[in-house]
């Protein structure tokens, strides 16, 4: 059964987590779009500008929320499920289903928001966004497992490497996507990397390692 008790627990913790992000989102919107109006005057309020800001912040926040939740799944919630004596197989199944649901939801929301903007080649964006979210979630699961296995200082190192990689390549990859270049190569990279992390995560969790950190 897809929705078993473990999934229900995961849904509950996700809703609670989402609520926190929603409050942060509302606070950011308030400070960045409403508060300035107190200084420049409410007559300057532009609905279109507000819409654009609100959707951009929401997109950024959804990305951050997915990233944070994926990291928590395999660290904090892994601990919680373990304490409730859920088998590792079941924990991994719950995390995998959660990843798929988060990817689909995140991609749908982001792409709906992108409808407000003029973007060429929407189909490609939809695929890229979906694949990139799924890759990020699986990668973060992997990093969190590393942290739980070997200690959290490994996470810092891994993220510094990742940040360097992103800074180094984001302009190129973003440019390629915008110009429609290397489509096949980029999509292949997303699929292969995701499959790699997915398989490694499932393999590692099936082994007897003690997640002591």
């Amino acid at each position: 059964m897809l929705i078993d008790n473990s999934m229900k627990v995961m849904a509950k913790v996700f809703l609670r987590f989402m609520l926190t992000f929603l409050l942060i989102y509302l606070a950011i919107i308030f400070f960045n779009t409403i508060v300035p109006l107190f200084f420049i005057g409410f007559s300057e309020f532009d609905v279109n500008e507000f819409k654009i800001s609100a959707t951009l912040y929401l997109a950024a926040l959804i990305y951050s929320m997915l990233v944070a939740f994926a990291a928590k799944c395999t660290s904090v919630y892994y601990d919680m499920f373990t304490i409730f004596s859920i088998t590792r197989k079941r924990i991994m199944r719950t995390i995998n289903i959660t990843n798929v649901l988060l990817t689909v939801t995140g991609s749908v929301v982001l792409n709906l928001m992108l409808l407000m903007h003029d973007i060429p080649d929407r189909g490609l964006f939809l695929i890229m966004i979906t694949l990139s979210i799924y890759l990020i979630l699986n990668f973060l699961n992997f990093v969190a497992f590393l942290g739980k296995l070997f200690g959290w200082y490994y996470i810092v190192g891994t993220f510094v490497l990742l940040a360097s990689f992103i800074l180094f390549t984001v302009n190129y990859i973003g440019g390629f996507i915008q110009m429609g270049l290397f489509k096949t190569e980029i999509i292949t990279f997303f699929i292969v990397a995701t499959a790699g992390f997915f398989l490694v995560n499932n393999f590692v969790l099936s082994k007897r390692y003690e997640y002591k950190h």
């Binding site: 660290s75 904090v76 892994y78 601990d79 919680m80 373990t82 304490i83 409730f84 004596s85 739980k148 002591k212 950190h213």
Partner: peptide, 13 residues
Amino acid sequence: KICLARETLGKTF
């Protein structure tokens, strides 16, 4: 079917 009651819910948690 199993519940292990301990004084902790896990270090990270």
